[in-house]
Every structure is written in C-alpha cells, then in structure tokens.
Nucleic acid binder design. Structure first.
Length: 423
RNA sequence: GUGAGCGUAGCUCAACUGGUUAGAGCACUGGACUGUGGCUCCAGAGGUUGGGGGUUCGAGACCCCUCGCUCACCCCA
C-alpha cells in the first residue's frame, strides 16, 4: 500500500466514468461562448511570477501563500498559473490584440493551481473556464456577459443558482471608502477576531463577510461602499442592474461581496449554488478597468469571469447528458489460432468502415467470450471457429433475440453495415 | 497554517463490552452446459485490517507515533 504511487494531495484523475460530464461542459462552453462572439485563446500553464504578483496583488492570499513557484535553470522565478485572467491580459498586451474600433472577446479553459488545503469543491489542480472582454466600459457588456454565463449554466441544466452582485467602486472612490472604514473600525479593533485583525491591515473590506458575531457587531453602523461610490460608479452600477432586468436575470445585491483579487473595479459578482458544501461559488468575476494599463497596454477597460468546472460538474445531473452510446457495435468471438488471426484482420476492416468492434484477447472459451460480449452491450456478435473458416462463413448472432445466421465472410462489412443501420 | 472525523477484499460495508481460522453483497474466474451470453445454482480466487510501536493470556477494536483520505476554518472557482 505505502509503496503504491498515488496522485499528489489535492490532485485527482478524471476517470472515463465521469468524462462525459467534462466533455459536455467544454462543448457547451464553446457553443454558447462562440454564439456571443468569443474566440478561444490557449494560454501557457506557467508564467513569470511577476505576471501574477502584479495583477492579483502582492497582499492577496493567492500570492502570499498559495502559488506553486519555482526557479527554472536560468534562475528565473516561474509560477504555475493560479488563475487565467493575468495570462490573458499579458497575451493581449504582448500581441497587441487591441483593436480600437471593436472589443476583443476571448475565452479559455484548463487547469489552474493553488496550493491550499483540499476540501469539498477545492483542489490544488482545479479546472476553470473563463472569458474576458476587452475594450469597453459600457455596462451593457457587464450584463451581457453575465447573461451569457447564466445561459451557459441553463444549458447545463443547473437549477437554483443565485447571482450576487456588487460594485466595488473605482480607484477614485474605493480608497475613500477604505479610509472611512478604517477610521470607523479603529476604535473597535480590539473587538475583532484574530483573522479580522489581520484583515484590518490588508483588506478591511473583508471584515464585512466574517462569520464571527463579534465582528459582525463591530461593523454595525459602519460606512458602506454604497454611500461612497462616485457618480460614475453609481450610474455604471445602476445601468448594469437595469440591463440585467431587461434580460430578465434575477440577482441579489450584496454590498459585502468582496473578491480576493486586487484587480477588480466596479462590478463584481459571484454565482453560488445550494447543495455544494461550503465552497459554493461556481463562478465569479467582474470588471478590471486598470489592469491592461498596468501591464503596459493602452488604457483598456475589461470585464471577465471564471467558472469552476469541478464544482459545476458536481451539479450536472446525469439526465442532462446526451447519452451517446459508448458501446461497441459488434463483438468478434474467435476460437483457435486461425480464427484469432482472421478476427484480428476482420475487426480492422470493420473499423475502416466505421463499425466499432471489440474482442477478447485472452484466448478464452466461447462461453467466456459471449459473456464479455454481453457485458460490452453489443447488438451483434460474430463467431468464428475452424468450421466457419473452412466454409468461408461466420456466425452472426443477434444478442437480444439469440438468433443466429451464417454470413459470408466476404460480405460481412456489407451485412453488418446494413444490420446496424436498421436498429 | 488551524481544528475535527475516518482508514477492514477491486468497490460498498459487517465483525456485540477486546475472545476461535476477519465475513457479506457487488464485481472477478471456473463449473452445471466438451463450440453459445443474460437468469439460476455450485465452487474458487482475492486481506500484512494504511504502516510502526505499545498495553494484554489474547488487538481490526484500546494507547502512542506516523502516513493517507475526508470535512470544516481561512480563502476562493
């Protein structure tokens, strides 16, 4: 047991039994996103460490303690991507993808890496599908992209999702709010829990969503972001909400919603699901109007989100999957060496004609081979032994009716093609 | 990083307060049926009870250490 290799903690294999869900998520994402004019971009699994520290923020949990960082042979510090937006922005700027006359819409999917303690719905290698729009501040885009996301989840058959939305303000109004909050909490600092003591320094906004009742009490009567938003942010948020209304998208305003990445401005949102344990956000995102500029590009407002595939997969009902028959069409049972050789050739001829064949490779008894055929769930089995070979025939057995006929070996492909078309 | 729970056959789980040779279902292999599946019946194979140490006449069970898994905190997708 102890010498058997195991996948690393927090990392798992996605086995054939569940792969259909994953292909379904990927296929549906491509369909829906492309309907909205998005193109796929494939970004590297790792980047220079600064790409992430700059964008995500030096004092965030991700950067401080969750990144897989290592030096390559030349001594450069590299990091396995903990999220996708930073790389997309880097690529956008690097390849001058900005086009002043239109927006750029990109999506990506793949694994991300964060070295956290694993938990239900949280892995060290986890999978995200993300989308980003560059080049407009228009709140129509905020609503439109959230609409696309909701449509995607609808296509997956997910129910009982809640969209929570907030506006974090911009670099004009957020610092003012932050100041006011620090001022308000200063005197109450000793009332805060240990975690919130730290948050006070780093990210006082987070104290809002602490579960400790003391901290909850301490924030009573405190200033809220709602009163501090500047005119621009206020109207942007109001417009976003009104566009959501026009799309008939339900939402819950959550002024306490704070995201863990520093780059967000204005709109921030999460989609949460019941029945997922405590890691209940299946998607999250928002606007980041300053990031492109910080990466050396022209001032370019942007909006994006990421979907947690592992969590989403848990919510997909088996009934939502189009059960494509994975069973082979025909099983070839061979008896003896001559027949085995014939079967070896025949199965390949069948495959060349689009017929999926399976066999037994152990030289088992006919009984055992038929048992196997049954397990594969094939409609037909071809039985070949010396007797049949001598006659140039094969026995064609219908597995559901148990009826058998002899079939000319030369006409097998033709006969099977016809039979399978009949079903 | 902190806390709690759990590790018994390939899988799901039994084994009363510590007491014979650790069981069952599913799955697997073979037979009943010398070249004919599903259903049934019979048989077989499969275990260092995660690992190490200790207590005891006796440990799967109790104690310690260790490894692993899970859940929660934190944080996020």
């Amino acid at each position: 047991m102890t010498t058997k290799y195991q996948a690393i903690k927090g990392v798992k294999d996605i086995l054939p039994a569940e792969i259909e869900k994953w292909q379904f998520m990927e296929k549906t994402a491509r369909e829906v996103f492309e309907l909205y004019g998005f193109s796929e971009i494939r970004i590297p699994i790792f980047e220079r460490t600064e790409v992430f520290t700059r964008s995500i923020g030096e004092t965030t949990d991700i950067v401080e303690k969750e990144m897989y960082t290592f030096s390559d042979r030349s001594g450069d510090s590299l990091t396995l991507r903990p999220e996708g937006t930073a790389s997309v922005v880097r690529a956008y700027v690097e390849h001058n993808l900005y086009n002043p006359s239109s927006v750029a819409k990109l999506y990506y999917m793949g694994p991300m890496f964060r070295c956290e303690r694993p938990q239900a719905g949280r892995y060290r290698q986890f999978y995200q599908i993300g989308a980003e729009v560059f080049g407009t501040e228009n709140p129509e885009i905020d609503a439109d992209v959230i609409g696309m996301l909701m449509r995607y989840f609808e296509r997956l058959g997910l129910k009982e999702l809640e969209l929570q939305i907030n506006s974090l303000g911009c670099d004009e109004c957020r610092p003012k709010f932050r100041e006011a909050l620090i001022e308000f909490l200063k005197g109450k600092r000793s009332l805060l829990c240990e975690d919130c003591q730290k948050r006070f320094e780093r990210n006082p906004l987070r104290i809002f969503d602490c579960k400790s009742t003391n901290c909850h009490e301490a924030t009573k009567g405190s200033p809220t972001i709602e009163n501090y938003r500047c005119e621009g942010c206020k109207s942007h948020f109001d417009s976003t909400l009104s566009y959501l209304d026009r799309l008939n998208i339900q939402y819950a305003k959550n002024p306490k919603l704070v995201r863990g990445l520093d780059y967000y401005t204005k709109t921030a949102f999460e989609i949460v699901s019941k029945g997922l344990g405590s890691q209940n956000a299946i998607a999250g995102g928002g606007r980041y109007d300053k990031l492109v500029e910080e990466f050396g590009g022209p001032p370019t407002p942007a909006f994006g989100f990421a979907i947690g595939m592992d969590r989403t997969a848990q919510l997909i009902q088996p009934s939502a999957l189009s059960l494509h028959a994975s069973a082979p069409h025909v099983f070839i049972a061979a008896l003896g060496e001559r027949a085995d050789l014939k079967a070896f050739e025949l199965i390949n001829v069948l495959r060349q004609n689009g017929i999926r064949g399976e066999r037994d490779y152990e030289g088992s008894s006919l009984k055992s081979q038929l048992r196997k055929a049954n397990k594969f769930g094939v409609k037909y089995t071809l039985i070949i032994g010396d007797k049949e070979l001598d006659k140039g025939k094969a026995i064609l057995r219908d597995m559901s009716s148990a009826q058998q006929d002899e079939a000319d070996m030369e006409r097998i492909v033709e006969i099977m093609t016809k039979k399978l078309r009949e079903r």
